[in-house]
Design a protein around this nucleic acid. Sequence first.
DNA 1: TTGAGTGCAAACTATTTGCAACTGG
DNA 2: CCAGTTGCAAATAGTTTGCACTCAA
Lengths: 132, 132
Amino acid sequence: MEEKFKRFSRQREEILEILKGTKIHPTAEWIYFQAKKKIPKLSLGTVYRNLNNLHQKGAIRKLQFGTPFDHFDANTSSHQHFICKKCGKIYDLFLNLEKDLKTEAERKVKFRIEKVEVAFHGVCLNCLKFSQ
Amino acid sequence: MEEKFKRFSRQREEILEILKGTKIHPTAEWIYFQAKKKIPKLSLGTVYRNLNNLHQKGAIRKLQFGTPFDHFDANTSSHQHFICKKCGKIYDLFLNLEKDLKTEAERKVKFRIEKVEVAFHGVCLNCLKFSQ
DNA sequence: TTGAGTGCAAACTATTTGCAACTGG
DNA sequence: CCAGTTGCAAATAGTTTGCACTCAA
């Protein structure tokens, strides 16, 4: 699935491994600093190039939550996100209604729907408890 | 509802009117060029400042669709978007499942959910017909 | 050998911001 | 008046890109 690239590269391998090993939906820069621990000469441009490459190939998801940063997610299976406006943390949700949403949309319009993005915004339990 | 500002300004009024009068979910620049027809001295910075202001007050929605541009929408009632990856056009959808989605999410996590964003990506009917 | 991939730095560009001037109440 | 708002231009900052070099196949 993720071997649609022309060639192997240690940088790309490492970037994908790091992304698969976290659930925090990191930014390019976070991935860059993690990967730099193992590949000290790594450059940020390479991280961006590979993330875009992986995204185009469908190996990862690229997410925007209204912050100035793009976030990345190696979990490409159907799930949703909750973004806490206090702490900025991004949580995964696994709701069953997503496919119904697609079905309902397809009943209303004759478009070819390829992707559904669902994002919830609000305040997470932790922030509700402690910062208010 | 939209009069939570400290003072009246012709620029902000015009920006909001233009946004209310379109369904294309325009960018700041598009609004800028439209408004400039009536207020020639208008600057792009003012457009951004007012759009952010209106957004913070809840008078408009700010949308990101994976393009480098922010899009704006004066329709703040519950609805979803479909973005065509061929022509870039943004369509409104009005699905009934959105509140169920919120309910299902609230059953799973004890977060305070304030906003739900649903975006579909794919190819619209027009592009399906004509460009393949 | 060769062209895909990299590191580096400069370029790009959407958006934000500082500041002096303006203006609405 | 005087604080909110503007126009202008410069700054910011996340991302992209050109180029010479490296390295996988």
